[in-house]
Design a protein around this nucleic acid. Structure first.
Lengths: 335, 335
DNA sequence: GTGAAAGCGCTAACAT
DNA sequence: ATGTTAGCGCTTTCAC
């Protein structure tokens, strides 16, 4: 069908080995031969067969990305960062959806191992029960993003979730909120854990009592945020502040607030983690903890590629990027 | 590292070919040998090397899915359908984002060809300018979903966009709307074209004049729908009905309507194509043209797998699935 | 610096 | 029905 390395070699009057050397540029090849090879590559439209290459090299040029929700802009923006960095290094990127489901996650990690992917970027469904040993047995490096693994030491890129939750809560307190409710993520994720802890820390530090009736857990999805918020609003004494721990749940929360016709920020000051690009269109503008999602992805890929090219087990790195509390109208009380 | 087919063969006391035959089940193998082979496969934890298999078979077990927006639930639900069907047949699925960008799309189609993917599900960015010849040259079958290609005859799965747009428009007319605005998709896509045509046909059939001032084109994204709707609302005479031709733009439209404090359905009757799962939470409930997205994906994969296994060029099929106009409160005028 | 040859793990054609 | 053999397209020793 299409041209192989032999065809190019023959046409250029050299051996396949030489063509390979020219194309991979690791070894010096005489100027003249090199020129002839490139000429024929162009002429024949030769494209190396990645499969054969990978079979021989015992590793593909593919990075796997296993995330919990492809429909979440937070993750897709991250994926862009990964893609860009990977492409530069000649790798391609394959996406898989774990749906916060340990079974699905395990299956995809097995696929990654079976397909001999060069590395995996993972946003683990559970800090304790996600199992990356399949990959480690095959010598496939892993980097976690957004979340961490408890027992297993692997590279990770994330923000200081505890700090940012504390800052957001402190901001709401400073706006005069006395009863700040919190919509938390799944208990199993480190983001769920750390953000809740940060919220509590801020309340304690301010001398407020931490009222567990004001905390609801949900699943990081729109419906979850919607339900949780409705329940919080129906508490005997209504909260006057609300912090939501991800973007999709924040959207759900806004729907619930709208349904109950609650005025932001007058009746309730609102803040959440992670923006959504089009949310800028909303009025009031939203107060959000903004993560450098693209950069998280880019650095994850960078770290992963480093591990791939030099697997000499350096100590696992944990990279903490800085996030930003962007204050909008939804939490700002005049006066 | 991990066990190969030779290891299994040796352990079971048979030849590699026999192991292959047992595993692929195309040829009869004696009960006894088959048992021994399976036993050793289990024991050694043998996993076939897909790379080697693909290299030998001259085709991977991977389907490519090239869509314009991974963040759109419409497409992701479709991808689920594709994945489920593909997995049943032992294929895995790789996603790529074309962003409605012809260049990106072309690059991904080239990747699909270079990686020798078994087939491609494509939602073409442009009915005329999208070029699938790269795939055809490599004998890789293509199925388009949601949209069609003009010149190139390939299989396609979609709904009757003209009909559904007409029905939705007729519904708005029946609710007493006299000035129905339309937010259309990109001119280059068949969905953009057909839905607009259906809208116009309904107006003409009702004896209404078609006022091009009431039609805005946008890019199928939230921002686009938001901008387009704002402009439509600022027309000298405000529309009293609005049909939006996809889900994300509908979300943008709703934001715009909210910003202008327009009451649905009293001041304006609202309908759109494609639901969003969490939109059920919205009040008023929305009137939508609901597509069988999962089924579109499933059938696309089914058709593709058929082409892959028997490439004897039967005439390209066009499968038209039925959609449904689900009437909600957003367009229902009492009395 | 370059070519010949071996082999990555698998399947298919050919023998038996 | 099963085994032997060759080869998919590439990289990489090993000679020269």
């Amino acid at each position: 069908m299409s041209a192989t390395i032999r065809d190019v070699a023959q046409a250029a009057g050299v051996s396949p080995a030489t063509v390979s050397r020219v194309l991979n540029g690791k070894v010096e090849v005489a100027e003249e031969l090199s020129r002839r090879v490139r000429e024929q590559v162009e002429l024949l439209g030769y494209r190396p067969n990645g499969l054969a290459r990978s079979l021989r090299m015992r590793a593909t040029q593919v990075l796997g990305v296993v995330i919990s929700d492809v429909t979440n802009p937070f993750f897709t923006s991250m994926v862009r960062g990964i893609e860009d960095q990977a492409q530069q290094a000649g790798y391609s990127v394959v996406l898989a959806n774990s749906d916060e489901d340990l079974d699905k996650e395990r299956r995809y990690l097995e696929v990654a191992a079976a397909e001999q992917m060069a590395g995996v970027v993972l946003s683990p469904s559970s800090s304790r029960r996600t199992d990356v040993s399949v990959l480690q047995r095959h010598g496939i490096p892993v980097v976690t993003v957004d979340r961490q693994l408890h027992a297993t030491p692997v590279d990770s890129i994330l923000i200081d979730n505890h700090l940012m939750a504390r800052l957001a809560t402190e901001h709401l307190l400073a706006q005069g909120c006395r009863r700040i409710a919190f919509v938390s993520g799944p208990r199993a994720t480190t983001t769920g854990q750390r953000r809740l802890a940060g919220y509590r820390a801020a309340l304690r530090a301010a001398g407020s009592t931490v009222d567990d009736d004001l905390v609801k857990r949900a699943n990081f999805r729109v419906e979850g945020g919607y339900q949780a918020t409705l329940e919080l609003l129906d508490r005997r004494r209504r909260p006057d502040g609300l912090l939501v721990s991800n973007n999709l749940m924040a959207l759900g929360a806004l729907l619930a607030l709208q349904e109950r016709e609650i005025d932001l920020p007058a009746e309730l000051a609102f803040a959440s983690f992670d923006g959504i690009s089009w949310a800028r269109a909303l009025r009031p503008t939203l107060t959000v903890v903004e993560q450098p999602t693209y950069e998280i992805g880019r650095q994850a890929a960078e770290l992963l590629l480093e591990r791939i090219t030099s697997p000499d087990g350096i100590h696992p790195r944990k990279v903490v990027l800085s996030a930003e509390l962007r204050v909008g109208e939804s939490s700002l009380r005049r006066g």
